[in-house]
């Protein structure tokens, strides 16, 4: 088959996306190296504290993804351009994956430190509620056939969910928390908190940066995938109508 054949229906991958993908993988590898070999071992908790870097970074990506969904949803409601809906959907999927990583890795960190896989702590509950909201988002979309209605409802639910998450956190926060506060605060004496030495802080920042790049890369790939999926649907519809 000729090479040009494949490009007939699909846009070739933009150079920028290729560069971005390569850079993200490289930066991610650097972050992983720093986490394992550069950052010092935490004295009180031992090796398991290294989970912290990617655990927090995954949570950050999840929150960022849902922010993107809410914003893309709002733009969709204003402009009714389907690409914003595709972006919102792509972002939700990635957010759900990363919040899952966040919850499970946090649970593994908690086991040796708090002595239990799970505690009913505000942050844990909020992360779980967030995951449930966006799983509900995906289920809502699955239940609607009309693409325009699906997009509108998705946008509405994405915005409502994003409003609800911070106030859920606030309301549960009024109960006492045992979760370590990473940046100072009153959490100093709580089990699981620690002082971040400069190499740790640097590793943390690089991890956050790497995960942000990984998020943008994944989002772009997922968005292109969704574009092609829509294209496929339309071609099928056209064939059926002929």
């Amino acid at each position: 088959m000729a090479a040009g054949d494949a490009n007939r229906s699909m846009e070739p991958m933009p150079i920028l996306l290729k560069v971005l993908s390569g850079f993200s993988v490289a930066l991610f590898s650097v972050a992983l190296y720093m986490v394992w070999f550069y950052a010092p071992r935490e004295v009180v908790m031992g090796e398991v504290q290294r989970v912290f870097y990617f655990h927090v970074a995954a949570g950050w990506v999840g929150a960022l993804a849902f922010l993107v969904t809410a914003i893309a949803g709002a733009i969709y409601l204003l402009r009714e351009e389907s690409r914003w809906d595709l972006l919102a959907l792509s972002s939700v999927e990635i957010g759900v994956v990363f919040i899952l990583i966040n919850i499970v890795s946090g649970s593994i960190w908690a086991k040796p430190i708090w002595g239990t896989w799970w505690t009913w702590d505000p942050r844990l509950i909020t992360a779980t509620i967030m995951e449930l909201i966006y799983i509900a988002y995906l289920m809502l979309r699955q239940g609607i056939d009309d693409p325009r209605r699906r997009a509108r409802f998705g946008a509405v639910y994405g915005i409502a969910g994003f409003i609800s998450v911070p106030i859920t956190f606030l309301s549960i926060r009024l109960l006492r928390t045992i979760h370590p506060l990473v940046f100072g605060g009153e959490g100093g004496s709580l089990a699981g908190s620690f002082n971040m030495e400069p190499p740790m802080f640097l590793t943390f920042m690089i991890s956050l940066l790497a995960f942000t790049f990984v998020f943008v890369t994944l989002l772009w790939h997922r968005y292109r995938l969704q574009l092609r999926a829509e294209q496929l649907e339309q071609t099928k519809m056209k064939l059926l109508l002929e």
């Binding site: 908790m45 031992g46 090796e47 398991v48 989970v51 593994i108 960190w109 086991k111 040796p112």
Partner: peptide, 10 residues
Amino acid sequence: PDTFSFMVLG
């Protein structure tokens, strides 16, 4: 404490 295995699991 030796928490290496939990780090690997994580």
